[in-house]
Design a binder for these strands. Structure first.
Length: 504
RNA sequence: GAUUCGCUAGCUCAGUAGGUAGAGCAUCGCCCUUUUAAGGCGGGGGUCCUGGGUUCGAAUCCCAGGCGGAUCACCA
C-alpha cells in the first residue's frame, strides 16, 4: 500500500467499505432519538428501580470487552461514560447473527459513534449498565483514538503530550474528561459575571475589533489592511476608548466581553488573543469599583465552587470580602523597606539598582516604580489584594488623585502573584487628557514602543463632556485559570496559538 | 528573542561501550453469553522530527534546522 495510511487507518477504511457493502450507511442522515444521558442514568438508577426501561442514548465507543457471544462496551456522551451490555441473541433475535458477529465485532471500532436502546440494570460487578436491545452505527471513526485506561484512580497511558493536546483539542476533549470540565467552568464563570452585570441593568455592547487607531492600553498591536478602503487597521488591544465614547453618548453603564489582541511574547500567562471584560459606570469612582469587583468575583467563586476558598496550586485563595488594600507606595515599603514617595527619577534609579531590579533606558519614573512593584511585590501577593494610587506617568487614561499629587485614582487587584484586573476613575477632563496623550508621544520618542497614540476623535468625544465614570478591565482567561486551578493559559483556551504543524 | 529539556508503533514509554528497534495498551486471527487497566493463545505494524557530517556501520556521537514544554525578558 502506498496510501500513507497507518495499518490501523487502513483497517478502518476497509471496514468502512465492508459496512457499505453490507448495506449500512456509516454516516446516516436521519436523527437518532436520545432520551437520556449517561450521567443521568448513573445518578438516578438504583438496584430494582424501574427507571430507564426504554433508554435510548448515543455516544462514542471508548472501550470494548468482547467475550464471545456477549460484550461489554463503554460509550461516552457529553455527560460522561456508561457501560453497555451487548448480547448477540438480543441484538440478533433471528437466525441471522451478522449484526453481532460481523458488524459489531469486526467492523465497529473504538471511536465510532453509535446509538443504542435497551433497559438499565446492574451487573454482578455492581456496574450500572444498559442492556442493549438494538444498536446502530451513527458515525464511523477512521482514526485510532489514544486509549486511556484507569484502575483504582491510577491513569494508564494518559494522553499527555501538550503539543498534541493543544493542536488536536478534539482528541484531548474526547479522552481527558477533566479538560472538558475546565471549559464548562469557563462558561459558568462568564455566565455568572454576565448575570451579575445584567442584574445591575448595565448594557452589554459590542465595539469594533478593527480600529484605525489602537488605544486604551500600553501594548503593541497587530496590523492589518483593508483592501477597499486601502487603509491600515489595527486589531484592538483594548476597548476602553470606544466604551467611554458610549458613556459620553449617554449610557450610564456599559460592558463588553471582548477578544483583544496584543502582538507580544507568549508564555503560560499570555496568548496573542485573549478575553477581557471591560465595564464603565457613570457617576462612580474607583473606590466604588473596588467594592463591585470584590462582590462580583466573590459571587463567581460561590457560583462555581459553592465556597469563596479556591485551591490554586499550593495555595488556598480566599475571595471572601473585603479584600486587603494597599497603596502602591505602602506595598513597596512593605516588601522592600524603602519609602519611595516623593523620590525623583534619579533617586528611583538608584533605589532600583540597590534592589537589583533591572531597568532599561526608556523607563521613566512611572515605569521604574511599576518595575520595582512587579519584581519585589506582585509575585508575593497571593490572596486577592487591591493595590491603589498609581503614578500618573503610567496611567494616561486615569483621573488625577483627588488629594495626592502625582498619583491617579487607579487600582489593580492582584491574586496568586498576577494582575487580575485594572481599574480607575476615568479621566474625563479633555484638556488634561490631551496633555497626557502628548506626554505619551514624548515617551514614544524616547523609545517606548508601547506608548499610546493620540486619538483625536476620542478627545472630541470627551470635549462634549463625559460624566465622572469608573472603569474596569478584568482578564477572563486569568480569572478562569485561578478558578479552575490551571497553571497555563493554554489550558483555558480551546485553541491556543501555535506555530504551523510541520511534517519533517 | 535567550537558556534548557524533549521528539522512537495509534497512545504511554524503554533502548544501556554506535552493530540496521522493543514493551504494555490499541490493532489483526482464534477461544470465551454479567466483564471492567477482562482473560488465554498466536500474528502484524516503525521515513527512530528533518537535513548534513563522522564511521565499515548512527535512534544512539557532531553540526544545522523544525516543532513543543519549562524558565527568563516584554506584556494582561
Amino acid at each position: 500500500m502506498t496510501t500513507g495510511f497507518s495499518e490501523q487507518e487502513t483497517i478502518r477504511r476497509n471496514s468502512l467499505q465492508e459496512l457499505i457493502k453490507a448495506g449500512i450507511n456509516p454516516y446516516p442522515p436521519d436523527t437518532f432519538e436520545v432520551n437520556v444521558k449517561a450521567a443521568e442514568i448513573r445518578k438516578n438508577f438504583t438496584a430494582n428501580c424501574s427507571l430507564y426501561q426504554q433508554a435510548s442514548m448515543a455516544g462514542r465507543i471508548m472501550s470494548r470487552r468482547i467475550m464471545g457471544a456477549a460484550s461489554f462496551v463503554e460509550i461516552q456522551d457529553e455527560s460522561g461514560r456508561i457501560q453497555l451490555y451487548v448480547k448477540r441473541d438480543d441484538i440478533c433475535p433471528g437466525e441471522d447473527k451478522t449484526l453481532y458477529n460481523t458488524v459489531f465485532k469486526k467492523l465497529l471500532d473504538i471511536g465510532d459513534i453509535i446509538g443504542v436502546t435497551g433497559f438499565v440494570f446492574i451487573t454482578q460487578m455492581g456496574e450500572i449498565t444498559i442492556h442493549v436491545k438494538s444498536l446502530r452505527l451513527l458515525s464511523k471513526s477512521l482514526r485510532p483514538l489514544p486509549i486511556v485506561k484507569e484502575k483504582e484512580n491510577t491513569v494508564y497511558d494518559a494522553f499527555t503530550d501538550p503539543e498534541q493536546r493543544y493542536r488536536q483539542r478534539y482528541v484531548d476533549l474526547i479522552v481527558n474528561p477533566e479538560v472538558r470540565e475546565v471549559f464548562i467552568q469557563r462558561n459558568l464563570l462568564i455566565n455568572s459575571m454576565r448575570q451579575y452585570l445584567a442584574s445591575k441593568s448595565y448594557l452589554e455592547v459590542e465595539t469594533p475589533i478593527l480600529q484605525p487607531l489602537y488605544g486604551g492600553a500600553a501594548a503593541r498591536p497587530f496590523k492589518t489592511h483593508h483592501n477597499s478602503l486601502d487603509m491600515t487597521l489595527y486589531l484592538r488591544i483594548a476597548n476602553e476608548l470606544y466604551l467611554k465614547r458610549l458613556v459620553v453618548g449617554g449610557y450610564d453603564g456599559v460592558f463588553e466581553f471582548s477578544k483583544d489582541f496584543r502582538n507580544e511574547g507568549m508564555d503560560r500567562f499570555h496568548n496573542p488573543e485573549f478575553t477581557q471584560m471591560e465595564l464603565y459606570v457613570a457617576y462612580k469612582d474607583y473606590e466604588w469599583m473596588m467594592k463591585l469587583v470584590e462582590e462580583m468575583v466573590e459571587k463567581i467563586a460561590l457560583d462555581l465552587h459553592g465556597t469563596t476558598e479556591i485551591k490554586v496550586g499550593e495555595n488556598l485563595i480566599d475571595f471572601k470580602r473585603p479584600w486587603k488594600r494597599f497603596t502602591m507606595f505602602e506595598v513597596i515599603q512593605h516588601f522592600t523597606g524603602i519609602d519611595i514617595e516623593g523620590k525623583t527619577e534619579e533617586e528611583l534609579v538608584a533605589i532600583a539598582k540597590k534592589l537589583e531590579v533591572p531597568l532599561d533606558t526608556t523607563m521613566a519614573k512611572g515605569k521604574i516604580i511599576d518595575q520595582i512593584f512587579g519584581e519585589k511585590c506582585e509575585p508575593f501577593l497571593i490572596q486577592p489584594t487591591f493595590i491603589t494610587d498609581y503614578p500618573i506617568e503610567m496611567s494616561p487614561l486615569a483621573k488625577k488623585h483627588r488629594t495626592k499629587d502625582g498619583l491617579v485614582e487607579r487600582f489593580e487587584a492582584i491574586c496568586n502573584g498576577k494582575e487580575l484586573c485594572n481599574a480607575f476613575s476615568e479621566l474625563n477632563d479633555p484638556i488634561d487628557q490631551r496633555e497626557r496623550f502628548e506626554l505619551q508621544l514624548e515617551l514614544g520618542k524616547r523609545g517606548d514602543d508601547e506608548s499610546m497614540v493620540l486619538d483625536e476623535d476620542f478627545l472630541r468625544a470627551l470635549e462634549f463632556g463625559m460624566p465622572p465614570t469608573a472603569g474596569l478591565g478584568i482578564g477572563i482567561d486569568r480569572l478562569t485559570m485561578i478558578m479552575t486551578n490551571s497553571s497555563s493559559i493554554q489550558d483555558v483556551l480551546f485553541f491556543p496559538q501555535m506555530r504551523p504543524e510541520t511534517r519533517g
